[in-house]
Measured scan of single mutants.
Amino acid sequence: QVASGNGDRDPLPPGWEIKIDPQTGWPFFVDHNSRTTTWNDPRVPSEGP
């Protein structure tokens, strides 16, 4: 069983990049398509309500 969020081996969607926040050391994700950033890994399906 693979733990949720453990998709580091999967490629990011086109136009996405991983960067590290220098203050926290946490990775965040840059979507160059929409010029936005998020803490949520785009490779992990979001949980519904």
Rank of each mutant, 00 (worst) to 15 (best):
Pro42Gly: 06
Val2Asp: 12
Ser34Glu: 05
His32Met: 07
Gly48Ser: 09
Lys19Asp: 09
Gly48Ala: 06
Asp41Met: 03
Arg9Thr: 09
Asp8Gly: 12
Ala3Thr: 12
Thr37Phe: 00
Gly48Phe: 07
Thr36Trp: 00
Asp21Val: 06
Val2Pro: 01
Thr36Ser: 09
Val2Glu: 04
Gly7Lys: 14
Phe29Arg: 03
Asp10Gly: 12
Pro22Asn: 12
Pro13Cys: 00
Gly25Thr: 11
Gly7Val: 14
Asp10His: 02
Gln1Val: 14
Trp16Ile: 03
Trp39Ala: 07
Arg43Lys: 06
Pro13Glu: 04
Pro14Ala: 05
Pro27Asp: 14
Arg43Cys: 04
Ile20Asn: 09
Leu12Trp: 05
Gly15Ser: 02
Asp31Ser: 00
Phe28Pro: 00
Thr37Lys: 02
Pro22Gln: 09
Pro45Glu: 01
Trp39Gly: 01
Asn6Phe: 09
Trp16Tyr: 07
Asp31Gln: 07
Asn40Ile: 15
Arg43Gln: 02
Ala3Asp: 13
Gly7Arg: 15
Asp21Cys: 07
Ile18Asn: 13
Arg9Ser: 11
Pro45Leu: 10
Pro49Leu: 07
His32Glu: 01
Trp26Glu: 15
Asp31Tyr: 05
Trp16Met: 02
Glu17Asn: 00
Asp41Asn: 05
Pro42Phe: 02
Pro27Thr: 15
Phe28Trp: 02
Pro22Lys: 11
Gly7Met: 13
Gly48Lys: 06
Asn33Gly: 05
Gln1Ser: 15
Phe28Asp: 04
Ile20Arg: 10
Glu47Asn: 15
Asn6Glu: 15
Pro11Ala: 14
Ser4Lys: 11
Leu12Glu: 10
Gln1Leu: 08
Arg43Ile: 04
Gly25Tyr: 08
Pro45Gln: 12
Pro13Gly: 03
Ile18Arg: 13
Asn40His: 09
Arg9Gln: 07
Arg9Ala: 10
Ser46Ala: 10
Val30Tyr: 05
Gly15Phe: 00
Gly25Val: 04
Arg35Gln: 14
Asp31Gly: 03
Ala3Met: 09
Thr36Ala: 02
Arg35Gly: 10
Pro42Arg: 03
His32Tyr: 04
Ile18Leu: 06
Ala3Glu: 05
